[in-house]
């Protein structure tokens, strides 16, 4: 849920299976948190980030990740104070910071990671529809950052600079996350459309000489599309829950991305496609029809990323 944070002080000791009362409420709280979709995504993202940092060129990325996470937590905490909230820990902000750091160049200066995260958090709190963020915060921050900071975006957290076989780990992690948040129709629609249109481009020799379908279908560029599909596209507050809407959302995001890729190229086509789809989702859900409201939706949802 948007803005959902966790107050671990409220967690009471629980009885263990053998009937004993645990004296470690915080430990239990973390265990519970990790089992939630949001916690699960966080674990997978942290795992990918640590794996990606095995590449010596990405070591600085870990520092940027810490700075981005800290920035997100502090800003969300300050917003919580302004909103008279007692929540002090923003798990959603943590995920946003991690995604921002994973996409930004690992060699970007620390202030770029901090400012990009600050933009993402600002977008989350300022651009809202029905108390939910209009745009994926990380995507919004990263898109704005491309115009403000010449930092580059390497999507290093997608294991793009590790050996090619490591993409299997990305896919496994992504599939498990997608299953957890019940977003398979959306991810399949996105990837099917994305790869299908690239195939059409390749057959008819369409596209820019500098941005070919051959590039997009290979490491490291395909890592970016997979990372976006699994970890950014599936953000519950900014993407639809009903299956039919999920398919439209995935198709639209991929279609826009490929059109921009074909005519403009560059680095932002995936982000723009996602953000436009976010906008469509907000527009489509402004007056939900009865059928829309009755459609299957997530019982639990993880926060904004």
């Amino acid at each position: 849920m948007h803005g959902q944070t966790t107050n671990y002080r409220q967690v009471k000791p629980e009885q263990t299976r053998n009937g004993q009362t645990s004296n470690h409420p915080q430990q239990i709280s973390w265990r519970k948190f990790i089992k939630t979709p949001k916690g699960f995504v966080l674990v997978v993202l942290v795992g990918l980030t640590l794996l990606a940092s095995l590449n010596s060129n990405e070591n600085h990325g870990l520092m940027n990740a810490l700075i981005a996470i800290l920035t997100a937590l502090v800003l969300d905490w300050l917003v919580g104070i302004l909103q008279h909230s007692h929540r002090w820990f923003s798990d959603g902000g943590l995920i946003t910071g991690l995604i921002v750091a994973d996409v930004l160049s690992a060699t970007a200066p620390w202030y770029a990671a901090a400012l990009t995260t600050a933009i993402a958090i600002a977008a989350k709190h300022l651009l809202k529809v029905k108390r939910k963020p209009l745009f994926n915060p990380a995507a919004a921050g990263l898109l704005v950052a491309t115009f403000l900071f010449p930092t580059g975006q390497s999507w290093w957290g997608s294991l793009s600079l590790l050996p090619g076989w490591s993409i299997i780990l990305l896919i496994i992690g992504g599939m498990v996350v997608t299953q957890r948040v019940n977003k398979f129709p959306q991810v399949f629609a996105f990837l099917g459309t994305y790869f299908g249109l690239l195939l059409v481009m390749a057959i008819f020799h369409l596209g820019l000489p500098s941005d070919t379908p051959g590039d997009a279908l290979r490491v490291p560029f395909v890592n970016s599309a997979l990372f976006l599909a699994f970890f950014m596209l599936t953000d519950p507050p900014t993407s639809p829950a009903p299956y039919r809407q999920q398919v439209y959302f995935g198709f639209l995001s991929a279609f826009v991305s490929i059109v921009i890729f074909a005519f403009q190229g560059g680095l932002t086509y995936l982000l723009v496609g996602l953000l436009l789809a976010n906008g469509w989702k907000a527009w489509a859900s402004r007056n939900p029809k009865p059928s829309y409201a009755k459609s299957p939706s997530l019982v639990t949802s993880r926060g904004e990323r």
């Binding site: 090619g164 399949f188 099917g192 790869f195 195939l199 070919t212 051959g214 590039d215 279908l217 490491v219």
Partner: peptide
């Protein structure tokens, strides 16, 4: 899920093969 994964994998593989000759990414 399995069927969709296979379908998308087939589309990807077709695109990969079609672009094999013109692929520019230098192997590791």
């Amino acid at each position: 899920i399995t069927l969709c994964s296979l379908a998308i994998g087939s589309i990807y593989a077709a695109g990969y093969l079609v672009t094999e000759a013109s692929a520019s990414v230098v192997p590791n």
